[in-house]
């Protein structure tokens, strides 16, 4: 690589950038849809955090609408039942579609009645995104390990920013809450969380802990803070019930 093709970077690792901020000049490699180009200058289009690696730039937006990508795991809500598919709200500007062929039902069995019996309006489901190009609604699948109707536990929604941090940077926080409350916690790519497997009281406590960290300055909350919080609350509850 010669000197001329190297981009001139105006940002450092983990800098916060804002819309209109100049990120680099020259030839830059980026796959982020949140970086845009004018002439040979690259700008940020969102409030986000940059990550620089070998002159490559990644930009994670702080807040963003959930845009489905293939292989994303999402928690959906059935909103309508069609003749051969279900309409699924996936916390996105785009309504998902679950075709009957992507479930264990056979295509030949498909009638509105059998579909309704299998999944009705208001049911929550754990699904995988298998295709999306923004022109047609995202296609979802229920075929795969762990996928299916959610019959136990509770589902909550958190901010997109908290979700990306829990998913990609601070998985340990989720693991800690799960361990301390004896629950199973699944964070969907679409900023919905499924809490299950524990006593109802402990599930509620896990939800409280998750809501506590769902703030813009969540990083000020450390793992030991959250452990202390859960243990304190647990003690209160035991007292009340005891």
């Amino acid at each position: 690589m010669n000197e001329i093709s190297k981009p001139m970077l105006y940002v450092q690792q983990r800098d916060i950038v804002l819309p209109g901020d100049l990120i680099a000049e020259g030839k830059l490699e980026t796959t982020s849809i949140y970086v845009y180009k004018e002439g040979n200058r690259y700008y940020s289009s969102v409030v986000g955090m940059v990550e620089v690696k070998d002159d490559k730039i990644a930009l994670t937006p702080m807040e963003h609408a959930y845009i489905p990508r293939p292989n994303d795991m999402v928690i959906g809500l059935i909103t309508d039942v069609g003749p051969t598919y279900w309409e699924v709200d996936i916390n996105s500007p785009y309504e998902g579609q679950l075709p009957v062929g992507e479930t264990i039902l056979r295509q030949t069995q498909a009638t509105v009645d059998t579909l309704r019996k299998f999944l009705g309006i208001g049911d929550q489901v754990l699904l995988k995104v298998i295709a999306f190009d923004r022109l047609k609604d995202p296609v979802l699948s229920m075929r795969g390990k762990g996928l299916g109707k959610i019959t136990v536990g509770k589902v909550i929604e958190i901010s997109s920013m908290t979700a990306s941090i829990l998913l990609f940077r601070k998985r340990s926080l989720v693991e800690t809450i799960a361990k301390e409350t004896g629950t199973a916690i699944f964070v969907g790519n679409n900023a919905r969380i499924w809490i299950s497997g524990g006593e109802p009281l402990m599930e509620d406590l896990a939800i409280l802990a998750l809501k506590k960290i769902d703030t813009p300055d969540m990083s000020s909350i450390s793992i030991s803070d959250i452990v202390d919080y859960i243990r304190e609350e647990k003690a209160k509850r035991v007292k009340q019930n005891g």
Binding site: L18, P19, G20, I33, Y34, Y36, Y43, S45, V46, V47, P61, M62, E63, H64, A65, S160
Partner: peptide, 11 residues
């Protein structure tokens, strides 16, 4: 709009 994470050229 920036707070909502809507991509834009500049504020």
């Amino acid at each position: 709009l920036a707070d909502a994470g809507i991509p834009m050229k500049d504020l």
